[in-house]
């Protein structure tokens, strides 16, 4: 176990070094995910006139939290995996003495570390521009948010990795991911806090894994009450399901992959 852990840490360090080479790109990438700030403007103005559950400052904080969460839980493993399968690079990776999944995970984590300073910078700039919204989550909230974020990232990664296995059969596995992503976009609380949803929609959404990927951690960060037990329970159920799906697809897919002469 210890040995595998060391391998993994080395991989994370290597991909962090790799990502640091592309700083400018990282900045652009962060900027390109400005959607939360656009929505923030909309909701702040709308709630200014009519009042809402949160009010302008509340919405500002909520969408800043959404931005941070989105940045910290970004996953793109399906695109990497698909390319590796189509170009046959996976064959070489299978020869390495470590499951290829670890390599993808390491590259995500390394990139995350490289991204972090920019996130702090964006938040600082935001508070300078809009000091009224300044707040810091307390240590207890920060700890809970961290746990929720780790779980959210793990679940996102697992779900996408399971879908990535479809690449063994089709060249456009990411079409599934696109479809899934839209549900994520609209049900996760990315577009608006879930308490603004009509009750029926919200009750359905709470059974899907999506609200716990954005809405729950965002609520924790802005210091609102959340049902953590329920959140982790739903995530665990979906996580288990996707884990078995992934193992199953991986095994049958791999057999098919090697059968093609690679």
């Amino acid at each position: 176990m210890n040995k595998r852990w060391r391998k993994f840490v080395t991989l994370v360090a290597a991909s962090h070094a790799e990502m640091s080479e592309y700083r400018v790109e990282l900045v652009l990438w962060i900027l390109s995910s400005i959607m939360p700030f656009v929505l923030m403007g909309l909701w702040m103005k709308a709630s200014h006139n009519a009042g809402g559950s949160l009010g302008p400052v509340g919405f500002a904080r909520y969408f800043l939290a959404v931005f941070v969460i989105r940045q910290l839980t970004l996953v793109w493993v399906i695109y990497e995996f698909e390319e590796d399968v189509v170009k046959g690079r996976l064959s070489a990776r299978l020869l390495h003495p470590i499951d290829p999944g670890w390599r993808y995970l390491a590259s995500h984590l390394g990139e995350r570390i490289a991204r972090f300073p920019f996130l702090i910078g964006v938040c600082a700039a935001f508070f300078v521009l809009y000091p009224a919204a300044f707040w810091l989550p307390g240590p207890a909230d920060a700890g809970r948010a961290f746990a929720a974020l780790v779980a959210a990232f793990a679940l996102r990664f697992l779900m996408q990795y399971a879908f990535a296995m479809v690449a063994f059969w089709s060249e456009r596995a990411n079409a599934i991911e696109d479809l899934w992503f839209f549900m994520y976009l609209f049900l996760s609380g990315f577009i608006a806090p879930l308490d603004l949803f009509p009750d029926s929609v919200r009750r359905v959404a709470e059974l899907t894994p999506f609200p716990y990927l954005v809405y729950m951690p965002a609520r924790i960060l802005i210091g609102q009450q959340v049902d953590l037990t329920k959140g982790f329970l739903v995530m665990a159920v979906w996580g288990t399901g996707f884990w078995f799906l992934y193992r199953r697809l991986w095994k049958t897919g791999l057999k098919r992959y090697s059968a093609m002469g690679a």
Binding site: N49, F186, I191
Partner: peptide, 16 residues
């Protein structure tokens, strides 16, 4: 989804 997002403003008594 986009229309739903739009409706959230109007259903909560706000406008654009």
């Amino acid at each position: 989804g986009s229309l739903f997002a739009l409706s959230l403003f109007y259903n909560n008594g706000m406008d654009l």
